[in-house]
Structures are given as C-alpha cells and as structure tokens.
C-alpha cells in the first residue's frame, strides 16, 4: 500500500518536472523562465525524493533522500535569487511586454546621485 502511495508521489513530481521544463522553453525572458523553472522543478524533485523515501523506508538511502530534500528546498531559491540579481546587473533586458521596472529606476537614481 505504501509503495503505491510512493509511486503516486513520483508521478506527480514527474508531471511538475515536465511542466517546469516546458515553461523554460515557452516563456519569453530570463526572469519568467527562472520563476517557472525554479518553482516547478524544486517541488517536483522534492516530490520524487519523498516518494523514494516512502518506498525505501527508514534505511540509509531513505534518510539520505530526506536530507537531500531539505537541502534542495533551502538552496534552490537562493541560487535563483543570485542568478536573477546577476542577470539584472549584467544588463539583461526585461520582456518588451512587461509593465513596470522599479529596480532599474532606483538603480538609475543611485547612479545619477553618484555622478553628482
């Protein structure tokens, strides 16, 4: 019974992985791609690891998969945040249909103050 529940968790995680990669292909600029891919692939991989834990049980591999899950939840948003900040500082433009960019406005203000 618990093996069936684990297989259901693995299937859900697999579907979210495929949706995240589809978002990586379809969406128009770096920030949207980063959003879709980080959310979907993080939860999908965590779901696959939790299914592995349910099937294997409290053995060495099961405990290690739980630790790996906690590690992924803690580090994947930090990596996404670092890549987004680096891309914005490197001058990657937003998509032309985007509505507002407060960050670029504030950065320009700081640069003008520094020149004065």
């Amino acid at each position: 019974m618990i093996n069936i529940i684990g297989l259901i968790f693995i299937s859900i995680g697999l579907a979210f992985d495929v949706f995240g990669c589809l978002g990586l292909v379809r969406l128009p600029d770096v920030y949207c791609r980063l959003q879709a891919a980080t959310k979907c692939v993080t939860l999908g991989t965590c779901s696959i690891l939790f299914g592995t834990f349910l099937i294997v049980g409290f053995t060495a591999a099961g405990i290690k998969s739980l630790l790996c899950m906690i590690f992924l939840v803690l580090t994947a948003p930090v990596a996404a945040h670092a890549i987004a900040r680096g891309a914005h500082r490197a001058g990657v433009k937003l998509w032309e249909g985007s509505i507002v960019d407060k960050y670029a406005e504030d950065k320009e203000g700081e640069a003008q103050n520094r020149i004065k």
Binding site: F19, L22, L27, P28, A36, L94, G97, K102, Y103
Partner: peptide, 12 residues
C-alpha cells in the same frame, strides 16, 4: 505554461 495565449504581465 499550458495556456495557448500565455497570460503573463511581468514586472519588477
């Protein structure tokens, strides 16, 4: 992602 018209309105 699956919607054919891609309903996004991004911004910072």
């Amino acid at each position: 992602v699956l919607h054919p018209r891609l309903p996004i309105y991004p911004g910072i």
